[in-house]
């Protein structure tokens, strides 16, 4: 069975994502996740709302192609993944990714 945990895989914790989260416009937090490639925006919205207990304003997604890697002669590709930018409603409490356990 597919659960919300299968949809949201992990938060994206990078300098860029954290800056975006802190400096959200209009008091809205912008969360960033790696999500299942087949997940839809409504599914992601539902999952984030359930996990963190917050209201989601909107979800934007992007398909990231896996990077090409090389082991000597052999060329390969890391798996492709989907990234989701989740904008929370204004005035929601700050989310701590640590709650995702």
């Amino acid at each position: 069975m597919r659960t919300i945990w299968d949809i949201i895989k992990a938060p994206v914790i990078t300098e860029k994502a954290l800056v975006a989260k802190e400096e959200a416009q209009g008091g809205r937090q912008l969360l960033t996740f790696r999500v299942d490639r087949r997940a839809t925006k409504p599914e992601i919205k539902e999952a984030v709302e359930r996990i963190f207990g917050v209201k989601v304003e909107k979800v934007r997604t992007i398909n990231c192609r896996g990077k090409v890697t090389r082991r000597g002669r052999f060329e390969g590709r890391r798996p492709a993944w989907k990234k989701a930018y989740v904008t929370l409603k204004a005035g929601e409490k700050p989310v701590d990714y640590g709650e995702m356990v």
Partner: peptide, 13 residues
């Protein structure tokens, strides 16, 4: 820390 420039990662992480 991956995803951060050196020394820019937040203390919590």
């Amino acid at each position: 820390v991956p995803g951060f420039r050196r020394g820019r990662a937040p203390q919590a992480i």
